[in-house]
Computed example of a mutant assay.
Amino acid sequence: MTPTPTGRLIAAATGTDLQMTREFKATIDEVWASLTEPERTARWFAHWRGEGRPGATVRLTLTAEEGQPESDMTIVSCEPPRRLEVETVDEHGRWHLEARLDEAHGVTTLTFVHHLDPGTDVASTGPGWEYYLDRLAAAVAGTPMPDFDDYYPSQRAHYESLAPEPERP
């Protein structure tokens, strides 16, 4: 399988956003549950424990990463079943993420946004989110999980082509 990269960079008031969309033949409530319920998020991304409410910090255990690393994640905003905004800081940097859901005619559309910090390596971050969002799609559909080797390094060139040229002194 060779998945096609879908991410694009969008200018935002606070900098640059990496944006991707996915469509699901599922209700908005089903997709929301896959984004917010610990047992369901564990199927594609991470199990979490703690109090899931705005302003709270929960503990993530990444289920698809070697060694199942842990980190804290703060819930910035939660507007069921339409919008979730979270932030985590780890050894790889700050990750400010947002998920927006809309449903029409039996199809739910997820707009995923990574609000990028300056210096974020989009060439490695983009393929990683493609992989995780396709894992989410597989979890919702009940289909086999994708293989990370199908995303990286093959999608690196796409994301390198999106990155703006560095400013010259």
Rank of each mutant, 00 (worst) to 15 (best):
A26K: 04
E91N: 14
A64P: 01
T27W: 04
P80F: 14
H92W: 15
G67K: 11
A42D: 05
S77P: 00
H92D: 10
Q68P: 07
T27F: 06
S77L: 09
I75Q: 01
T74K: 06
F24I: 13
R94I: 15
P80G: 13
D29C: 12
R40H: 05
A64Y: 09
V76W: 03
T88W: 10
P80R: 11
A46I: 07
L101H: 02
F24V: 06
K25S: 10
R40D: 02
D90Q: 14
A33W: 03
L62D: 02
V86H: 01
T41L: 12
R59K: 15
E70V: 13
R53M: 05
L35P: 00
T63P: 00
T57Y: 14
F45P: 01
V86W: 01
T36M: 04
E87N: 06
P80A: 12
P54L: 14
H92N: 14
W95H: 13
L60E: 02
R83K: 13
H96F: 14
P69H: 13
E51P: 00
I75S: 01
R83S: 04
A64H: 07
V58K: 01
W44S: 00
G67M: 14
T27K: 06
E66Y: 06
E98C: 09
Q68Y: 10
L101N: 02
P69I: 09
T88S: 10
V86L: 07
K25R: 10
R53I: 13
D90T: 13
A56Y: 12
R82P: 00
L84G: 00
E98T: 11
S77F: 09
G55L: 11
E66K: 11
R43Y: 05
T61R: 11
A33N: 05
V86R: 00
T27S: 08
V31I: 09
S77D: 08
V58N: 03
V76N: 02
C78L: 14
W44R: 02
E66V: 12
E87F: 08
S34P: 03
R43A: 08
A46K: 03
K25F: 09
W95P: 01
C78K: 04
T88N: 09
R100S: 03
V89E: 03
E30A: 10
G50C: 11
A33S: 08
L84S: 00
L62R: 03
E87R: 06
P80L: 15
G93L: 14
L60S: 00
V76L: 13
E23A: 10
R100H: 04
E65G: 05
L84T: 01
A56F: 09
G50D: 10
L62I: 08
F24W: 06
E98V: 15
R100W: 04
W32R: 01
E85Q: 13
L97E: 05
H92L: 14
R49T: 08
E91F: 13
T57E: 15
V76H: 01
